[in-house]
Design a protein around this nucleic acid. Sequence first.
DNA 1: CGACACCTTGAAGAGGTTCAAGAAATGTGG
DNA 2: CCACATTTCTTGAACCTCTTCAAGGTGTCG
Lengths: 239, 239
Amino acid sequence: MNPVAIKVACSNCNLRELCMPLGLNKEELERIDDLVAVRRKVLRGTALFHNGETFKALYAIRTGFFKTTVTTEDGRDQVTGFQMAGEIIGLDGIVNDHHTCDAVALEDAEVCEMPFHRIEELSREVNSLQRHVHKIMSREIVREHGVMLLLGSMRAEERLAAFLLNLVQRLHARGFSQSELILRMTREEIGSYLGLKLETVSRTFSKFVDDQIVEVKQRHIRILDTEALKRIVNLQPCL
Amino acid sequence: MNPVAIKVACSNCNLRELCMPLGLNKEELERIDDLVAVRRKVLRGTALFHNGETFKALYAIRTGFFKTTVTTEDGRDQVTGFQMAGEIIGLDGIVNDHHTCDAVALEDAEVCEMPFHRIEELSREVNSLQRHVHKIMSREIVREHGVMLLLGSMRAEERLAAFLLNLVQRLHARGFSQSELILRMTREEIGSYLGLKLETVSRTFSKFVDDQIVEVKQRHIRILDTEALKRIVNLQPCL
DNA sequence: CGACACCTTGAAGAGGTTCAAGAAATGTGG
DNA sequence: CCACATTTCTTGAACCTCTTCAAGGTGTCG
């Protein structure tokens, strides 16, 4: 665990608008640069942090793709989210000074490590940073409400449709295609996130292919009919 | 919508240790008193705030019991949590300046309304308050991870057992019995929270009664065998 | 006391899981 | 670069858990 460390600057980072507040003046921007202690590379399959580890920093993803998972005493685990460039991970560690989930890179990744004590210091002085931190945490709470809704009340097809729409929407916001994507995770990981078994995920993909809603070649997905996916998500169960 | 408003002080509130940071000096305590704009009474069955309403404040529950729910376009809704005295609600509204869920009182309640701009102001100056706000939000994120685990990977009995253990533990922390509790919510609301139908909740209660794990008289629950509940939650599915 | 909301229980049915086998892709070492 | 091992994905069939539909019971409140 000796990460490659490179000194960097937010002020000329092209992801700034994703992970940092807008409308900062020059001086504030320079101070924000000091937030990032180091950049760290995280190889595919390795963890950025583990459940139980001491919490020291939040991480802004520069490149790559992560999953976060929680685990029960008896070894079951649940994927709680997939994170991509510009998103922040590590918020779970703040409460008890220890992380309560694992963050694992699903492809080679690079993150900006921002020591939390510095975030707290600086956000006392830069109001827009304070506001930003609050919004990021609130956004995560709201996202999780959505996942609870999905897990609590949707059927397999609805879950997978919602999942695909969400992924493609976030990718599109980052300049990628609205209709094509490459899944960075296995069927099993999708299933864990959606509360389904991997076979069910696979079968549901196959059903979507039959219905000509998507094309699936392994992890390469092409969405043929976005509207159909939206209809599936919003579909009233029966009446 | 013209709530009963009473001016109050945190400094002599017996719930202070639940909703406010510890170890404040006299001056800080006095300033924190100014956080609470008003107290508001919320009658059973009425909402403290609604989905879509402008976000202005966080609320600390003084007395009573709430549920929060999110709703889909097509009208399905999901209970995202039950909140009791000393807990904070409203965090969902920070991201977009609008609430994204409903908070409804399940029994007559009283809350302390804390305008969020004041919280932000004061937490720039009182470090322990800043830290406290961060922890509250992080705690909510971690709680929701737990719910995702429950919804994504547990079976009906495990869900209900986990639910009862969680409720009774929180009640115990507030000085109530470790073994007796009165449910403030219907079977349907429990079911919504746990991703089950009300009939399944009812049947699972009945099974627990058969197994002499609990006594159930409507909403009055007596836990006879806490260990059994814990075993059910931690039970490995098969192997 | 009667209306209404809430809860329980039964029987039938559906959706998802489990188990199993095979195919396709990926990685590894010679 | 190819053969082989490994991981990942797909598909089928049987099974099981939870849901749905239905009816009746219990409790509460005007």
